[in-house]
């Protein structure tokens, strides 16, 4: 009798039991810090013990701070340049590898993807050596192919070259990663559609535009959304590459780097939280725009 009752209890409360450890951690380490950071963003915090309520002053200051404006512009610049290079390059590689008779496809796929296994920090360390003027591998290669540029390019010391250096490292890190997604999607496109298009006399380009591209749309959207969100959180690459500074004349600074410097170098947790909420706002706006695009795309 008691056994039966216990048995009934365990089956009835099983789902609550299964989700409870997650809910406990989720509340303590996600919901609470989120709410706390919203409150914190209204305070000036010199140390954990001395906090002063300042209302929206943190946000007001942010709007006027030129260093923050620079970080925002840098981040947007990176996101736009990086995405408009990564997506076409990944797609081109995937299409090239998806040909009917390509030898060594497994090797090629691994060769392009392998860089994604290297963490951001390690990529930054490797690139900091390869970008060295005169002796670095990249400058030597540039000097060999374009003798008029030479080998003296100061990638990490010239303000205007700061973001291009970061874009270069990011591309090495993620073109192969995008390629894997496109390859999977290409394999899902119906072969018969190509044959039908060929019968109708569609050329190579027409087939790509009207058969391949529509089949790739979901993956394309996914990669753009994930890529943009990641781009706006850019931190490790510039932070390590520029030796834990904001880069030459601040041209390597990003929103998250600004947050880090304010929160953990200057030590104002309140102000840093306000920076964080501006980042939240930007990312939510981008996601909303994407979702609207998704809906508009479904209609046609």
């Amino acid at each position: 009798m008691i056994r039966q009752k216990l048995w009934a209890l365990q089956s009835r409360y099983a789902p609550y039991f299964f989700v409870s450890p997650f809910i406990a951690l989720f509340s303590v380490f996600m919901v609470y810090p989120l709410c706390r950071s919203l409150v914190l963003s209204l305070y000036k915090a010199a140390s954990p013990r001395s906090m002063k309520f300042v209302g929206l002053d943190n946000y007001r200051f942010l709007l006027r701070d030129w260093a923050f404006r620079g970080a925002v512009i840098n981040t947007f610049y990176f996101a736009i340049v990086f995405m408009s290079l990564q997506i076409p390059l990944s797609l081109a590689l995937a299409v090239a590898l998806n040909g009917r008779r390509v030898y060594g496809r497994m090797f090629l796929r691994f060769a392009f993807f392998s860089s994604h296994l290297v963490g951001n920090v390690f990529v930054a360390i490797i690139f900091s050596m390869m970008l060295t003027p005169r002796h670095g591998l990249i400058n030597k290669a540039i000097g060999a192919v374009f003798p008029f540029i030479g080998t003296e390019t100061q990638w990490t010391a010239k303000p205007l070259l700061a973001m291009p250096a970061i874009v270069m490292a990011s591309l090495w890190l993620s073109v192969g990663y995008g390629m894997i997604y496109f390859l999977a999607a290409l394999q899902g496109v119906d072969r018969e559609l190509y044959d039908a298009a060929e019968m109708d006399g569609a050329g190579r380009w027409d087939r790509f535009r009207h058969v391949t591209l529509p089949g790739l749309k979901p993956v394309l959207r996914f990669l753009v959304l994930v890529g943009l969100i990641g781009a706006f959180q850019l931190f490790e690459l510039p932070f390590v590459l520029f030796g834990q500074t904001a880069g030459p004349a601040g041209y390597g600074s990003t929103i998250v780097m600004y947050l880090y410097f304010m929160g953990f170098d200057a030590g104002d947790a309140g102000f840093a939280s306000a920076v964080g909420w501006v980042l939240v706002l930007i990312i939510l706006l981008i996601s909303l725009l994407q979702l609207r695009g998704l809906r508009a795309g479904r209609d046609d």
């Binding site: 989700v19 809910i23 989720f26 380490f29 996600m30 919901v31 609470y32 810090p33 989120l34 706390r36 950071s37 914190l40 915090a45 954990p48 969100i229 706006f232 959180q233 931190f235 998250v256 947050l259 880090y260 929160g263 953990f264 947790a269 309140g270 840093a272 939280s273 964080g276 909420w277 980042l279 939240v280 990312i283 939510l284 996601s287």
Partner: peptide, 27 residues
């Protein structure tokens, strides 16, 4: 409701919690 709360937090970048989390770990 649990699913909705979870979905909402998914779009929020974790960096916004860094200062409040650090204070919490300090405590």
């Amino acid at each position: 409701s649990l699913l909705i709360v979870m979905l909402t937090t998914m779009l929020i970048p974790y960096q916004v919690m860094l200062p409040s989390m650090q204070l919490m770990m300090y405590r």
